[in-house]
Amino acid sequence: MDKGNVNARDGVLAHLEMLEVQAQGAAMKQQEKDLQEEKLTRLKARVMELRLQRDELQAKVNLQEKKQLEKEGTASDPAQASHKTVLQWKIKNLQAMLQVFYLTGISGKLTRHGVCFYISTAYEGTYLDSYYLDLLTKSEVQIYHHSVPHFIPLEQIAKQYLQTDIRRFLSVLSDHLNAYVGRRYQADQLQEHFSDQIKGTLWRNSLCNLLVFNYDMPSKSKTFPFHVRLVYGNLCHSLPTEVTISCTPDAPASLTETATAHTHLFRSMPLHKAFHSLSSAGETLDGTP
């Protein structure tokens, strides 16, 4: 009986405790729900606000388009434009012109202690890396910071021209950088578009003036009988000065002649274009009975 009483008492307490926990839980849930709802309302309001903003902007753009269609020439409306608007327009215009210098390969801006140049590079119409060169121009011109890769003979070029002829200095450096980037681009293109004709990856040094790889004619045996070594002796050029093609010992003798023909092709044409022309030549050969 006693025992039962104790149990019953315990049971009541436990029950009460349980109720309390439940109530707490419910309160928390309610709180969470409130928070959630609050968040939802906030989000809804934000969405509405943004939608409105978008619609207004869209209307502005539409109006602008309509206006431009109405008066097809472009004329300013000086009566309406404030002096500030005019200046802001001019500033943007100047900024755009400075940006165009990026396309010319050499751009820059004056700094407090000298001048910072940007040398951009391109292969044909594709712009590639650009490098900066921060110069101090006190009594003597000094290179303060730069992002030119270490394997470009910057120091040597600087020694030759930096103090005497800055234009020449930039032009020579630009030739080096463009040639390097051009060689790298060709190797990348080859790897990307003709990987099935190349055994593994082609080997190149950091300056990309030495490339070595084994290759095969398109859709052939996949034995990769040609071994080629390209040396770019002129660091300001992106065509090789030395092309050596050898055939694997077990290759048929007729291939030696093909290799000689390829030598000429590689010397006179960018690498990926040479492979392109090999492929198209291969196709026409296959096509004729």
Partner: peptide, 20 residues
């Protein structure tokens, strides 16, 4: 909108000088 505003407007050097 900004681009189009910039592209469709033109101010002469004289107008710019006056504003300055």
């Amino acid at each position: 909108y900004e681009d189009s505003q910039q592209e469709s407007t033109y101010f002469s050097d004289k107008e710019i000088l006056m504003s300055v």
